[in-house]
Write a protein that binds this DNA or RNA. Structure first.
Lengths: 199, 199, 199, 199
DNA sequence: AATGAATGAGCCTTCATTCAT
DNA sequence: TATGAATGAAGGCTCATTCAT
């Protein structure tokens, strides 16, 4: 354990630490990491500036916790959905559900998603957190697909690519910046491609 | 023209402005935008701190030029390749070429790519630059595909998605972080999917 | 209240804010506003550079407080003297007192007086502060003079002019730069003129 | 002579030096000394930045020349008027002329007047230039008054004070900031006071 | 004599982090 | 544990002055 960093054991302290993370989560989402100042996080969390350093090593440490929360919030619903599945299941409706769930999750966290991913490139430990998440999703989803009777070759590769494709679509549909694009048609194309890969 | 911003007309000045952009390009790639300080850009370019502000309005203005260069460097080879095509052409070999070209381009600019895209989320004018690029590529590529005889429906949507898919693959293959992934198989999967979309 | 500007409520903080103003007062007097750098103000006040911006919005804000103090220091003794007067009073001894009080006040603040007045010409809000002071003195003094039985015509105009004349004399006598001038005789001339105006 | 400072002997060079002084004169008047940047002076004078340092030691040196010009412009008309006088002359109309001439001169140079006087307090050589002017005016005017038959005592003191009084009035009347002041009445009061002093 | 690009010291201000209470 | 005032290093930017041409 880091020197001097408090390990909150009491109820109130846990609340406080979580409040700080939540406040940071919100501010990072809105303003980005670099434009958010520590004292504003403290203020938003309703604590003093100083105590932030009682719970976190430094500003980056807060970011690290924010990412953990983010990862959990984003991944959990999808992981739970996947876990809940049992044969027989229509691949198409399953893929449609996953796409729509991802879309929904991204809609709620669009800014943070991008801010965090961008930080991942200069901050290697943040990157590792994301890689862990990707691994976890890929392995779990592949296993489940096999359980459900999918016997496509190169399954892990396809699942990985599927994650990317779904996220790309979600991203595009959320920002909705190109007026010549029919996002519903795009979504159908994504789903049909996934069906093809995993049928 | 902004007051006081030098418009380089002489050979040496053009060199200098380009040297500053190149230095910023490199430093932004390595350390990110916020962690790069102006005096380091100047030092890396072999000029004084002051003259940087003779060529650029402020630090963000340098970033803007870096993006312009980046966009050109990344997009040009692919755009040129696409322009050069004329029927008859094998869709598969064409897709393979585009995938490999993208992979190559990303290999050279991986970090910057991500840093710039991340900035795009807090800086709207940077975002617009990228949207312009995406529009340009989508429209041009769609047009060319039609010329080559492709009569797939929702072509623009597919091209847009294809850009994303190819970039996702390129990204994954460059970082090569998941040891259970066979990146060659992933690539084949990408190419076959594209063939399916555009055949 | 400006965002982030500390409103000092505790004893120590009030001391600190006043110490900064006092230090600025001194340095502005000696070196002028533009030649005084913020870090020197902080050093002279025995505080860190950063905390200065906890109490003041920016450097000009410090100047503004300095002016307030200056105005109070300069005007108060004279205003108090005038208030204290009640009939019957010898116009001559009253004028003599005012002249000598002004002289004394200016002796202590000669440089700052000039520096502040000079800034007033490029900085309109500073100018307004001085105009307010002039108005206040003119109106109060005129009122008092009438109370004391003075029924000169154009009283406000004369009071205004008197302020200027007294200040001119004070200024001249303090700097004492012309060896052919007998400053005592000059003073008598000022006083006799004032007596003439207000008798 | 200062090392490297050009002593312009040719027609064109004299023009150029004067053009720089004129440009500085204007810019200092408008923006103040500290807010005027050397390159803008050069631009306004239609010369290069570098050549300014061929004619002047530094920025303060330009200021010094500006003051010389200013002093000449301000003082000349009044000095000339005074020289032109010969007995018999009405003291009152003479005083009225001087007041109105001063008023006119100040109207054209109001800003610069203040800017220069303020600088005089931190810059001792500038101050000396003003003292020289005051001495010159005081001595000349006193001499002339005596020639014209004035035998008031403490003449130099009165002339000195008169300069100040007239300037105060001119200043007040130009800025015209106090709506309860009748500036014509103020002017009459000034003139009658002067008549009293010098009759 | 002239140009104007280049220099770099130094300024104001911010903010992550510490520390007295 | 908690506060929030205080610290001070560092960043972006300006501008008087110099210098290669």
């Amino acid at each position: 354990m880091e020197k001097g960093i408090r390990q909150p054991v009491q109820r109130r302290s846990i609340d406080k630490k979580e409040r700080i993370i939540k406040a940071a989560y919100e501010l990072f989402s809105t303003d980005g990491y670099y434009s958010t100042v520590t004292s504003d996080i403290a203020k938003a969390a309703g604590v003093s500036t100083g105590i932030v350093y009682g719970y976190f090593k430094d500003k980056r440490d807060i970011l690290f916790y924010v990412i953990k929360i983010y990862v959990k919030e984003i991944a959990s619903p999808i992981m739970e959905y996947i876990s809940s599945l049992s044969a027989p299941v229509s691949i198409e409706s399953m893929m449609r559900d996953v796409v729509e769930l991802t879309e929904k999750m991204h809609k709620q966290n669009a800014n943070l998603h991008n801010i965090l991913h961008s930080l991942a490139f200069t901050e290697s430990d943040i990157n590792e957190e994301f890689l862990r998440l990707e691994d976890h999703v890929t392995i779990s989803a592949s296993k489940k697909l096999r359980e459900l009777g999918c016997n496509a070759d190169h399954l892990e590769e396809k699942v990985h690519l599927a994650m990317n494709l779904i996220q790309s679509y979600a991203h595009e549909s959320i920002y909705d910046k190109h007026d010549y694009i029919d996002y519903d048609a795009m979504k159908e194309n994504v789903i049909q491609t996934l069906v093809l890969w995993f049928k």
